[in-house]
């Protein structure tokens, strides 16, 4: 069922292309959700309904699948993001203190975004760099061997000026 979203938003075109690549098969739902999140940053109800229609699936199925997986997010992310690893290796090396320090500095709890949209904090269960524990990911960049002070230093700049 090719056909672009009435909004004319170019990103829907790319999403359509991804669905087409999978021949609009229902079993490609996860791949499609991945693409949608990549394109839009998060999954809005409107977007989920659009996907349901295109893949000929009940919206409940699309919503049910999307909410099952931690990877998908339903609220906009902040301009900057800090992901603190709470995997076992990082936990043993004191990741909880890291988390507290970052949460305090950015004044936001893990899993949330600041109301001014500047930054969000989340936790991960192992990013696979356990040899460097404790680890956090700042705007997609993994940093290892962190102390609470070093982590705070990384995120401090985010609040003052736009760039970090």
């Amino acid at each position: 069922m090719p056909g672009n979203h009435p909004s004319g938003d170019k990103r829907f075109k790319l999403l359509d292309a991804a669905m087409k690549k999978h021949q609009f098969r229902a079993d490609a739902l996860l791949e499609v959700l991945h693409t949608a999140q990549e394109l839009f940053g998060f999954l809005q109800p409107d977007l989920l309904i659009y996907i349901a229609r295109q893949l000929k699936l009940p919206p409940s199925r699309v919503y049910g699948v999307a909410t099952f997986y931690h990877f998908f997010s339903f609220t906009p992310k902040g301009e900057h993001s800090c992901v603190v690893c709470l995997g076992t290796a990082c936990y043993v090396k004191g990741a909880a203190a890291l988390q507290n320090a970052v949460e305090k500095e950015l004044d936001v709890k893990a899993g949330q975004t600041r109301s001014d949209g500047k930054a969000s904090v989340s936790i991960a269960r192992c990013v696979g760099a356990c040899g460097l524990a404790p680890v956090a990911v700042f705007d997609g960049e993994v940093a290892g061997g962190l102390t609470a002070e070093a982590a705070v230093k990384r995120v401090k700049g985010w609040l003052e000026h736009g760039s970090g």
Binding site: V65, Y69, H70, F71
Partner: peptide, 22 residues
Amino acid sequence: IGAGAFVCGEETALIASIEGKR
């Protein structure tokens, strides 16, 4: 590509996930 659910490492859950389900 998985989407962050530990249980999907279990083989029957993994199969469901490849099929595009929960």
